[in-house]
């Protein structure tokens, strides 16, 4: 239980990934699938930010106002910048891929006038 509370972030990460996966598989609506994909993705981003966080650390901007000295004397007082930049670019790429997914959904809607998977399949069979 101690371990579970200490790693509460990771539990939430797993729950978010489960929610996202469930929605991508079980939801029939294409827009809901896209939102599920985005939730899965934010789960992974939360995971990366969690492993890069440090207790009692400051943001990774080194200023004299925050009593930083150059070079930094205590690295453990500055949050990990590496995981942050990986996720920063992932977010922007994520919105671009969400755009592609929505464009595909919109094209499907033009053909079948529905976002519903079952209706689209019925239309295909006709």
């Amino acid at each position: 239980m101690e371990k579970l509370i200490a790693n509460f972030n990771y539990v939430i990460v797993v729950i978010l990934m489960m929610i996202g996966l469930w929605s991508m598989l079980a939801q029939k609506n294409l827009i809901k699938k896209c939102i599920g994909m985005a939730i899965f993705q934010t789960g992974i981003i939360l995971f990366f930010i969690s492993i890069g966080a440090k207790d009692n650390a400051l943001i990774p901007i080194l200023t004299e106002a925050a009593n930083h000295t150059y070079p930094v004397s205590d690295v453990s007082k500055v949050a990990n910048p590496l995981t942050q930049i990986l996720m920063l670019t992932a977010i922007v790429v994520g919105v671009a891929t969400l755009g592609v997914a929505l464009a595909l959904a919109q094209k499907i809607y033009q053909q079948h006038s529905s976002f519903d998977e079952d209706e689209i399949l019925e239309n295909e069979r006709k």
């Binding site: 930010i49 890069g52 966080a53 943001i59 949050a79 920063l88």
Partner: peptide
């Protein structure tokens, strides 16, 4: 932001 990832 709470975890110190302000840019993200």
């Amino acid at each position: 932001a709470g975890m110190g990832a302000v840019d993200v």
